[in-house]
């Protein structure tokens, strides 16, 4: 029954539609409007529920469009983890440092071996971007690494 991937997906979608519908019914009413803020969400929730039921009963694809090998999953997950780390450290360490580290580590993990070009490209790309944003365009990418810490010290005294 649940062998086909489409059916699994349709059940997830159905559950999502129900949660969305519940959230829609909880939206507060606004006394002045003719069509209130909850009208469209309710409609969309019902529509999604119907579509997911339709998907369930349609002659489904038995398999996903492509399958992943275990090692590939590992690579994807590690890149995911790296991006997550990048975001976490972005404002803390500042754009320059975080980006250079990220570029070096990611390229390395993806199997690029030429250290010289990794380092020169990472440095070049990051520094050029940084200077064109912060100085030419005056759009401020985070610059002071360990920023929060410094501010914290400066204002506690």
């Amino acid at each position: 029954m649940l062998k086909s991937i489409d059916r699994k997906v349709s059940i997830v979608l159905f559950v999502f539609a129900i949660i969305y519908l519940i959230a829609s019914y909880r939206l507060p009413a606004f006394s002045y409007s003719i069509v209130d803020a909850d009208a469209l969400p309710k409609g969309l929730g019902v529509l999604l529920a119907i579509l997911s039921v339709l998907l369930f009963f349609q002659s489904p694809h038995e398999k996903p469009a492509f399958k992943l090998k275990k090692e590939e999953v590992a690579i994807l997950l590690s890149v995911f983890g790296l991006i997550l780390g990048y975001i976490l450290l972005f404002e803390f360490l500042g754009f320059l440092l975080t980006t250079i580290i990220f570029l070096i580590v990611t390229s390395r993990i993806l199997g690029y071996t030429n250290w010289k070009s990794i380092i020169s490209v990472s440095l070049g790309f990051t520094v050029v971007l940084y200077f064109s944003f912060n100085y030419l365009l005056q759009i401020y990418l985070p610059q002071e690494y360990c920023h929060s810490r410094k501010e914290g010290l400066a204002w506690k005294h």
Binding site: V79, F102, L103, T106, L110, F125, T126, L129
Partner: peptide
């Protein structure tokens, strides 16, 4: 640009 490098650049 070699793919491994290009991928990281696109992410940034």
């Amino acid at each position: 640009i070699p793919k491994a490098l290009l991928i990281s650049l696109v992410i940034v």
